[in-house]
Write a protein that binds this DNA or RNA. Structure first.
Length: 570
DNA sequence: TTGGCACGCGCG
DNA sequence: AAAGCGCGCGTGCCAA
């Protein structure tokens, strides 16, 4: 492992550097050449190590090898150290392990997977410990990390093309963005948020329950003739509704709107208020917004398809109603950009379906489909496309899907093949080689008879087919979004620094335009006002670069809806 | 008392 | 309105 360490080898221009953490608290940097071979290593105190990382970043911008960017990058950021390129061994291990494009597989090593099945642990306490603090069990020793990096390079070198390596680099870049966004925070105006709450819910009453919620609840109890009714209890509410003559089978909004009863309107109103109050009310504000910054925790690659998940604060579920609370600092603006119809465009491009790309060329894919004449309205086109990507077989959506097959032959064949592969128990891949998980047979259950069991098995297979059908589209769209993010980040960093810093503390992005939010197909950039044009251009160019990098010369457009504003009104 | 589950609903 | 994909989280309920 410690091959070729000559005493006087000055680590002048490392191609990559492993960041190891020793048990003593010291850090070891392992300097690697272009071939991924060690030519020097040095152990530092943490403070010295940060200084060294800053130095080498500035002079040779190597790729920094982290065990886990999520665990280890925040400390660097807090110390003002930002890196351009990285490799996250945990994230990359997962991708390489699962990818069908990699012939030479990584040896099995459970501790290089972040999520440990609970059954592995002796009790739930240990399972929780393993989840929260992987380093309690997993060494960060520099030799261990260097060894894993070498194994990953070997595995990647056995692939016939560079797609998975590209995906690993992108995944790692995304992880850097995620931590930088958490560090910067979404600029959040508490007063605006509180005003929205008060406008919607009324003033906070006794016990914290807003007045309008109490009043509406009382009204519902009267109308349902049930003075003690606990409206938040779904079974009790359902029984009360049925007693009052409402033949509803559930209390969902979708079901309730179909019934006529004086209590329905206030009940829907109550549910809207209760949702806002519970999910994003004063409690949420106190817990998740500090110093006028909302800091969600992103989990890159945590969804099987490669999408990001989030943990805490419901970062990916902020209701559009609260968007106005996102406010730029004084002298700064927000650039909000999202891609119109990202997934069907990605499908058209990955299938090289010229007819579908042609339909997408006008800016509105759905209008383009109407122009082909296979459907009459934009709405029909939209539901047909969603049905094709999700595997709808019934309803109006399912009825429209066959029409797409007559015109968008290649795109439909791609998703139909993916569905069939899934039904047959096979794997499918995204454009860059992220591979779907293996279908898990459902636990054996008592079935009334053999025919019933067969139907049940068929149903489960179809479900998995719908999953693999969607996997290739959602996953490749997630890859496009990762390239977009990485390209935005790179371009924003190249813009000049500003005189007026953003208010966020503890972030290296204080004086620069920076990403603050990402959600599948949209981004928010917080930007000094004087750089708004340059940053907007960066976001546009990044989208074009992403499309070129993934789809080459294939003529697909990815139109951005981009707004520059001091707030995030929608 | 607590963990797991179903429900319902927010986001793409 | 469309019923097809992927998530996280708050609530109530109930079995351990």
């Amino acid at each position: 492992m410690s091959a070729d360490v000559s005493a006087n080898a000055a680590p002048s221009k490392p191609a990559s550097v492993v960041i190891g953490h020793e048990d003593s608290g010291d850090m070891t940097l392992v300097f690697l050449n272009e071939n991924g071979h060690e030519y020097h290593r040095k152990t530092y105190s943490e403070r010295q190590a940060h200084a060294a990382i800053r130095h080498y970043e500035q002079h040779s911008a190597p790729r920094w090898i982290f065990r886990s960017i999520r665990d280890d990058y925040p400390t660097l950021l807090a110390d003002g150290v930002r890196v351009a390129r990285a490799w996250d061994l945990l994230l990359c291990h997962q991708i390489i392990r699962d990818s069908a494009l990699i012939p030479k597989q990584l040896p099995d090593a459970a501790h290089w997977r972040r999520s440990q099945p609970v059954s592995d642990a002796h009790d739930t306490q240990a399972a929780l410990f393993a989840w929260i603090s992987p380093h309690a069990r997993n060494t960060q020793d520099s030799d261990e990390l260097y060894g894993e990096y070498s194994r990953q390079r070997d595995a990647l070198a056995s692939s016939r093309d560079g797609r998975v390596e590209m995906l690993c680099r992108l995944e790692s870049a995304g992880a850097l963005v995620a931590e930088e966004m958490t560090a910067a925070g979404v600029p959040w105006n508490t007063a605006v948020h509180e005003q929205i709450l008060e406008d919607a819910l009324g003033p906070r009453g006794v016990g914290g329950i807003p007045q309008r919620m109490r009043d509406t609840a009382a009204q519902i109890r009267t109308l349902l003739n049930d003075p003690q009714l606990s409206i938040d209890s779904q079974p009790k509410l359902l029984r009360a509704l049925q007693r009052a003559g409402v033949a509803a089978r559930s209390t969902s909004k979708h079901e309730l709107v179909q019934h006529q009863h004086p209590a329905i309107v206030p009940l829907l109103e109550y549910k809207r208020m209760a949702r806002l109050f519970a999910a994003n009310g004063w409690t949420w504000l106190a817990e998740w917004v500090h110093d006028e910054r909302f800091r969600p925790v992103y989990l890159p690659g945590a969804v099987v398809t490669g999408r990001w998940a989030s943990s805490g604060g419901g970062a990916l579920q902020i209701p559009r109603q609260l968007r106005p609370a996102v406010r730029a600092d004084d002298g700064w603006v927000l650039i909000m950009a999202d891609v119109a119809q990202l997934e069907p465009r990605v499908l058209a491009a990955m299938a090289a379906d010229s007819a579908m790309a042609q339909a997408a060329a006008g800016g509105d894919l759905y209008e383009g489909i109407v122009r082909t004449g296979i459907v009459a309205t934009r709405e029909e086109a939209k539901y047909a496309v969603l049905g094709a990507m999700y595997g709808a077989t019934t309803g109006d959506s399912g009825r429209l899907v066959p029409r797409l097959r007559t015109v968008f032959t290649r795109a439909m064949r791609l998703v139909d093949d993916a569905a069939r592969t899934g039904e047959e128990g096979g794997h499918v891949m995204t454009l860059l080689g992220r591979t779907s998980p293996t279908a898990q047979p459902p636990p054996a259950q008592d079935m009334p008879d053999a025919a019933y069991a067969a139907r049940d098995q068929q149903r489960v297979r179809r479900e998995f087919g719908r999953f693999t059908r969607n996997f290739i589209v959602q996953g490749t769209a997630a890859e496009w979004a990762l390239v977009w993010l990485a390209e935005i980040r790179q371009r924003l960093w190249a813009l000049p620094q500003t005189q007026v810093p953003a208010a966020a503390s503890g972030s290296v992005a204080n004086h620069r335009a920076h990403l603050v939010f990402f959600l599948h197909d949209e981004v928010i950039v917080h930007c000094p006002r004087e750089l708004a044009d340059a940053a907007s251009t960066a976001v546009h160019e990044a989208a074009q670069a992403a499309t070129r990098r993934l789809f080459g010369d294939f003529p697909i457009t990815m139109p951005l809806d981009l707004t520059v504003s001091s707030d995030a009104h929608v």
